[in-house]
Write a protein that binds this DNA or RNA. Sequence first.
DNA 1: AAACCGACCGACTGACCGGTCGGTTTCAGT
DNA 2: ACTGAAACCGACCGGTCAGTCGGTCGGTTT
Lengths: 207, 207
Amino acid sequence: MNPSTTATPTKSEATAARIIAVARTLFVSRNYADVTTDMIAQAADVTKGGLYHHFASKEQLYVAMMVGDLESKRQLFQQAVAAPGTCRQRLAKLTNDFLELPHEEREVTQLVRRDINTFSGAERDSLVRAYQRALPEQIEAIIVDGISDGELTPADARILSWSFVALVEVVIGEYAERLLGSTEACLNHVLDHFFDGAAAQPPGGNR
Amino acid sequence: MNPSTTATPTKSEATAARIIAVARTLFVSRNYADVTTDMIAQAADVTKGGLYHHFASKEQLYVAMMVGDLESKRQLFQQAVAAPGTCRQRLAKLTNDFLELPHEEREVTQLVRRDINTFSGAERDSLVRAYQRALPEQIEAIIVDGISDGELTPADARILSWSFVALVEVVIGEYAERLLGSTEACLNHVLDHFFDGAAAQPPGGNR
DNA sequence: AAACCGACCGACTGACCGGTCGGTTTCAGT
DNA sequence: ACTGAAACCGACCGGTCAGTCGGTCGGTTT
């Protein structure tokens, strides 16, 4: 009487969600192969049998975790797509919203992006579809707006959006570890660079 | 009488090189954990005992493969650093040289970049050092030249070079698979974008 | 209260895999 | 031709781990 859409979750649903939550933490902290089902089960306070009652395989659990994460990210970024303001302001909002997430949430996103190609068959397809809905497509929407408003130079919107994703990801993945200084400052530099380019500007750009 | 520096390789050196070569192919096609030492040995036409005669562990073999790859990339990119021309021309040469490599060579580079942080101790340190010599440092050298020549806007050279690496990597990793059209064309778009920015230009940029 | 059901348990298994080791072959130097 | 060391072999071991299966238990239906 209580399928998955209602507000109060079944006990079964709660258990499955708990398993996914601890699995996410573990998969972020080590490689897929180095996380054993026993570890997940113990951390989720169930036995391995209980885990396999909810998920058909370790891989299916992994995919379920990824899909869930992509879905939550999609909802987050949807707000930036719907927000008012210039293209630059909206992209800045999107990246700032992402930066304000807990550290683990951000790492999961990198994980998904890294591992999204390591599956096959129907699971892979649903993953890829979820991913394309989650990030690049929404950025592309903002960029298309920017081009049609004349704020951005007319160019292939898809290439621009992928470039943007690449830049932001490097900021989050590399700068935070290697370079000192705040991630926010780096992000601002990269945003500047994304819009204005690296070439020396003739006086009078349009910031 | 024939140490590793001479032209004609020892039989032992040839075997080790053959093992590394097939290991590279296998590690590119699947995850580290999914490549067994038996598979490597079989593909290299030796037994597992023979493999362990040349390499102390699977991990050491992996690191040896990565270091070798980084060294060969370093030599390749060194030419771009030494080349004459504008900053843009030199960066274009560097990316074009990389694009002309066989597909597997390019994939190894992505692999290295992905896995370089998953080691510990002395092996990790030597890896990281080799990596920093191989790619970003050389790009940074070109960019520093560009800044001091007035060709590039004064900015943090390290951030710019990391951005550049990120952009090029995405082109090579993503565009080639997902988007149709030639990788070269995408790369030119991205180079344009890197220099000129995404913002609409006031007439009279400096290309 | 009997029948039933889904959630969950936990000991077990079968396969796999990294690494070892005693033995065999190959080959350079004499 | 002899010898000693290096290269190489392949059966084996110890451990790990995904996945299984018969069973328990609390709650719901009849």
